Simulated scan of single mutants.
Amino acid sequence: MTNEQAADWWGTAVSRIEPNLIELRGIPVQELIGTTGFGAMIWLMVRGDRPTADQARLLEAALVAGVDHGPHAPSIAVARMSATCGVGLNNAMASAVNTLGDSHGGAGQECVQLLEEVRGREAGGSLLEDAVADTIEAWRQRGIRYLPGFGHRFHTHDPRRDPLLALVDDAVRTGVVDGEHARAARAVEAALNEGRRRPIPMNIDGATAVIYAELGFPAPLARGLFVLSRSVGILAHAWEEMGQGRRNKGPIPPAIRPTYLG
C-alpha cells in the first residue's frame, strides 16, 4: 500500500490534523475556541456547517433537557454501580452509555421516525388527522404498544415538555424552523388522548425529537444526540458515587435478598 492509498483509507472531511495545524470542518481550531458554544460545535462537527445563533440555542435547549433523570434511569444506575467497582470514570461512563439502546435511549430516534411517517402520508395527499390515524395503526400492527415520545412511567406530565415546545413555537414565529414536525407531534398527542380519562402527554423524548427533526437532524442522530446529552448526567453521578466510598454497589441494598425462583 502506498502512502497515498494509506492516507485515502482514513480520508475524512471532519478534521485536518497536521504539525501545528488543527482544522475542524475546515475551520482553524483557534477560531472556534472561545467563540463557539458546545451545541454549535456539535452541529458543526456532525453536519459540516455552522448553525445560526437561534438554531444553536434550540439545539442546546434539547441537550440540556436530557442530561439526567436520576437512578430511576438504568444508564445512571449503571454509572453509579460501575463507579464502585474499582474502575475509572471512563469505564463507568462507557458502561452506562452502553445501556442506551432501543428500550432506554432510543425513543427519540423512533419518535422522529414516527413523525416522518406522519409527514410522509400527509405529503402523499392525506389529511393530517388521517395521516396520524394511519401511522398509529401501522405502528400498532407492528406490535408496538407504547408509541415512542408519548406517556411516561414516572411523570403524569413531563416538566421538560412545555418549555421545549414553547421554544419550538418561538422558533416557528421567527422563522427558524417551519413547525411541521411540531404540528405532527401535537396531532399524534391529540389522537392518543381521544376519549381517555388519563392523558398520554408528549414526553421528553417526543419534545426533543420535535426539536431535532425541526432542525433537520436525521432520526439516527436523535439517538446520538441523546447519548451526548445523557453523558453529562452519567459523568456527574459516577463522580459523586466515587466520592461516597461505597464498594461493589449492587442494584439492591445488601440486606435485601432476591426472591429465589428455582
Rank of each mutant, 00 (worst) to 15 (best):
E4A: 13
D8T: 06
W10Y: 12
G11W: 06
A13T: 15
S15M: 14
I17E: 11
N20P: 00
N20S: 13
N20W: 09
E23L: 14
L24S: 07
L24Q: 14
R25E: 11
R25G: 10
G26D: 08
P28F: 05
E31D: 15
E31S: 12
G34F: 09
G34Q: 08
T36S: 06
G39K: 04
M41F: 15
I42M: 15
L44Q: 07
M45Y: 11
R50H: 06
P51C: 14
A53K: 13
A53L: 13
R57V: 05
L59E: 09
E60F: 07
A61P: 00
A62I: 11
V64C: 04
H69Q: 12
G70H: 04
P71V: 15
A73V: 13
A73N: 15
V78F: 02
V78A: 15
G86C: 10
V87W: 07
G88P: 13
G88V: 15
L89G: 08
L89H: 05
A92R: 08
A92D: 05
M93C: 13
M93H: 00
S95Q: 06
A96I: 02
A96K: 02
N98P: 00
N98F: 09
S103W: 06
G106F: 02
A107G: 03
G108Y: 04
G108Q: 12
Q109H: 08
Q109T: 01
C111K: 02
V112E: 00
Q113F: 04
Q113P: 00
L114R: 02
R121G: 10
A123V: 03
G124V: 09
L127F: 05
D130V: 14
A133I: 02
A133F: 00
T135D: 01
I136N: 02
A138S: 15
R142G: 04
I144C: 02
I144R: 14
R145H: 10
G149Q: 05
F150H: 12
G151S: 08
F154P: 00
H155F: 14
T156G: 04
H157D: 14
R160V: 05
P163E: 06
L165A: 01
L165M: 11
L165H: 01
L167W: 01
L167R: 15
A171Q: 11
R173Q: 14
R173C: 04
V176F: 00
V176N: 01
V177W: 07
D178E: 15
D178S: 14
E180P: 00
R183M: 07
R183P: 01
A187H: 07
V188N: 08
V188C: 10
E189Q: 13
A190E: 13
A190S: 11
A190Y: 01
G195F: 07
G195I: 10
G195H: 11
R196L: 13
R198K: 13
I200P: 01
D205N: 12
G206Q: 06
T208C: 09
V210Y: 04
I211C: 09
F217I: 07
L221C: 00
L221R: 04
A222P: 05
A222W: 04
R223I: 00
G224Y: 03
L225E: 08
F226G: 10
F226D: 06
V227M: 15
S229D: 04
V232Q: 00
G233Y: 05
G233D: 03
I234P: 06
H237R: 09
A238F: 03
E241Q: 15
M242N: 05
M242F: 01
G243C: 04
G250R: 13
I252Y: 05
I252H: 08
P254M: 05
A255M: 10
I256K: 07
R257G: 03
Y260R: 12
